[in-house]
């Protein structure tokens, strides 16, 4: 099915890179998914190489039935985001995929030096839960068929992070 992003990138998204970038990459990802973990350094390399040409957006798509820690990890990133540290938590979660239980997540929060009491309260926030549920729904309606799923300039990209990297190497240079 030729799918495209039903919910365009907007002010509620977490965005890295230039808003004027010619290439917009949206990832629907799951912090406990090993394929997303493998994609993480590849995306970093793409960002380092192409700089301002790339806008990168991460949306939560926790596959809760097969990844029991994925939902709390998504909440942790959002909760850290309320204290201005979404991307720092996003990176730490992918760098510690094997320790995403409650204890592991609290250790990551301590490392980020966030207000722990506030962080713990926000982890229970109905608003953040709704944000994650909405992200799951928008992903499903947009044709996300597994994690990670990438969209380039709104169109579903049928490949993984390395395929994406190869494509950019060929087309941008």
């Amino acid at each position: 099915m030729s799918s495209h992003l039903k919910n365009p990138v907007n002010e509620t998204d977490h965005i890295q890179g230039s808003s004027n970038a010619s290439i917009e990459i949206v990832e629907y990802g799951d912090y406990q998914c090993s394929y997303c973990g493998e994609a993480y350094p590849i995306i970093k390399r793409i960002q380092a190489k192409f700089g301002d040409q790339i806008k990168f957006v991460f949306r939560n798509f926790p596959l809760t039935e097969i990844h029991p820690y994925a939902y709390d990890a998504a909440l942790a990133a959002e909760a850290a985001g309320l204290q201005g540290k979404f991307w720092e938590m996003h990176d730490l979660l992918f760098e510690h995929q094997n320790a995403l239980d409650k204890h592991g997540i609290m250790k990551l929060a301590e490392r980020l030096d966030v207000d722990i009491q506030l962080f713990e309260e926000d982890m229970q926030s109905a608003v953040l839960q709704k944000r994650i549920d909405d992200s799951l729904e928008s992903g499903m309606l947009s044709g996300v068929n597994g994690t990670p799923s990438f969209f380039i300039n709104g169109g579903k990209f049928n490949g993984g992070a390395q395929d994406l990297s190869d494509l950019l190497d060929e087309s941008v240079e």
């Binding site: 099915m1 499903m140 044709g143 996300v144 068929n145």
Partner: peptide, 17 residues
Amino acid sequence: TYLSPTAINPGVDGILE
């Protein structure tokens, strides 16, 4: 109805629509 190529995971966007 939707028939997907065997190697391709069709996702749920078509059926939800």
